[in-house]
């Protein structure tokens, strides 16, 4: 994503790296593995808790309705 830095266009003579400007990163090179890990862990937790709730708390506690 291009940023608009007024200082760069005024001809200060410095490069982007030297002025500390964040480098442009194409979308496909952005690899948020941390976010993926957190989302994945939450996803697994959700499935495990849902299965626990359904199969243990709801479906197998006897007595239950048979007809």
């Amino acid at each position: 994503m291009p940023t608009d830095e007024p200082e760069a266009s005024t001809g200060g003579g410095t490069t982007d790296e030297a002025s500390g400007k964040a480098r442009d990163l194409p979308l496909d090179e952005f690899q948020p593995y941390g976010t993926l890990a957190v989302t994945g862990a939450y996803f697994v937790l959700l499935l495990v808790l849902y299965a626990l709730l359904y199969f243990v708390e709801f479906a197998t506690h006897a007595p239950h309705i048979i007809e």
Partner: peptide, 10 residues
């Protein structure tokens, strides 16, 4: 009203 047997499926 409600009818619940706690800890069961009823």
């Amino acid at each position: 009203h409600g009818f619940e047997v706690p800890g069961s499926g009823l």
